[in-house]
């Protein structure tokens, strides 16, 4: 009390009021300043909620795929040209029609036995592999189009060395080999089971037919299996590192010929990244061996051919009832 009295005495009544006013002004000024500084006015802070901050992982992606309304048909060809030979002037001993349904992220691979006895537009009837000798990839395209009743969008052609280099350029191909494969010609023995095949071994796997009970039919299915394996590997690598797409496109273009324009090829590659390899049906056109003018040929099962062609045309996919049995069924245990 004594202290208070002393202080009051010292300031006097007028000094006390001025100090109180000044303090009030200072407080108001401080409140206004702090309010402005914090971006709020007193009483308004509750209305200002901070948005929830993104602290979880988030991803954004876009790939320019091909239009999904129509199936895309691509003819994959393998020339039996040896080093130094004209690649597209030799027989096409590997012929596969790839049908892609972008909307359903599914595809079908149809293998053609190389000795299939078919009509070659402008060249009468001959083994299908002779079409390339007569007119290059374009004539093989016309032959398959005539046989299947589809319009083929693009073709791609590789050869032994090109195929081997392509596989090596992507660092090998992961394949779940379904049964032991022996290819004496290249002294290759590939055991069953998942493994990464070098270009040399992948080529051996693609060429081996003598040890297969269905010969070229079984080989054609194995070639389709390599395509499916490549798709699975590409997809996995793309998911991990999308820039791998350029390596795959580069490896492909360095080792094959194609009529796919580069920008379309990139789109095709992006489209492939969306395909589910488990949803790819791999078949070989069924048929039986016969003779034509002293030559051993394959007579395609016309009923099966018509059913497969009709089924494939609309959406590029096959119904279960249309899928023929595997030529390697006896080796697969099925």
């Amino acid at each position: 009390m004594g202290t208070m009295g002393t202080r009051c005495d010292r300031r006097g009544p007028m000094g006390g009021r001025a100090a109180r006013r000044a303090a009030l002004v200072a407080l108001l000024l401080m409140a206004w300043t702090l309010g402005s500084t914090l971006g709020t006015t007193p009483g308004g802070s509750a209305a200002r909620a901070l948005p929830v901050l993104q602290l979880e992982r988030a991803r954004a992606g876009y790939v320019p795929t091909l239009d999904g309304s129509e199936p895309i048909f691509i003819l994959a060809l393998g020339s039996d040209a040896r080093p130094g030979e004209e690649i597209d002037g030799q027989r096409a001993d590997s012929i596969h029609l790839i049908a892609i349904n972008p909307a359903k992220h599914r595809a079908t691979i149809v293998g053609f036995p190389r000795d299939a006895w078919v009509a070659i537009p402008g060249y009468g009837t001959n083994k299908i592999n002779a079409a390339m000798t007569a007119g290059g990839p374009d004539l093989v395209v016309a032959t398959v189009e005539s046989l299947m009743g589809v319009t083929i969008d693009y073709w791609a052609l590789t050869w032994f060395d090109g195929f081997r280099a392509m596989i090596d350029d992507i660092g090998g191909l992961r394949v779940d080999v379904p049964f032991d494969v022996v290819y004496a010609y290249a002294r290759a023995e590939i055991p069953a089971g998942p493994q990464t095949l070098s270009g040399k071994d992948a080529l051996a796997f693609a060429r081996a037919r003598h040890a297969l009970p269905a010969g070229d039919f079984g080989r054609s299915e194995n070639q389709g299996l390599l395509l499916v394996s490549a798709l699975a590997q590409f997809r996995a690598e793309f998911a991990k590192d999308p820039s791998r797409l350029l390596d795959w496109v580069g490896a492909g273009l360095r080792n094959m010929r194609t009529d796919v324009p580069l920008d379309q090829l990139l789109r095709l590659a992006f489209t492939a990244s969306t395909l589910n390899p488990r949803k790819v049906t791999n078949i070989v056109l069924p048929g039986g061996t016969g003779m034509a003018g002293g030559t051993s040929v394959v007579n395609l099962d016309q009923a099966a051919l018509q059913a497969i062609a009709a089924d494939l045309r609309d959406d590029g996919l096959l119904r279960k009832g249309t899928i023929p049995p595997s030529p390697n069924a006896s080796l697969l245990g099925g």
Partner: peptide
């Protein structure tokens, strides 16, 4: 004589506070 010291104390405080507020703003 008695008020002078109070003015000397309060006004600089007010000015200082205003100054700080202005700086922050």
């Amino acid at each position: 004589r008695r008020r002078k010291p109070l003015g000397l104390v309060v006004i600089p405080i007010v000015l200082a506070l205003a100054g700080v507020g202005l700086v922050l703003l």
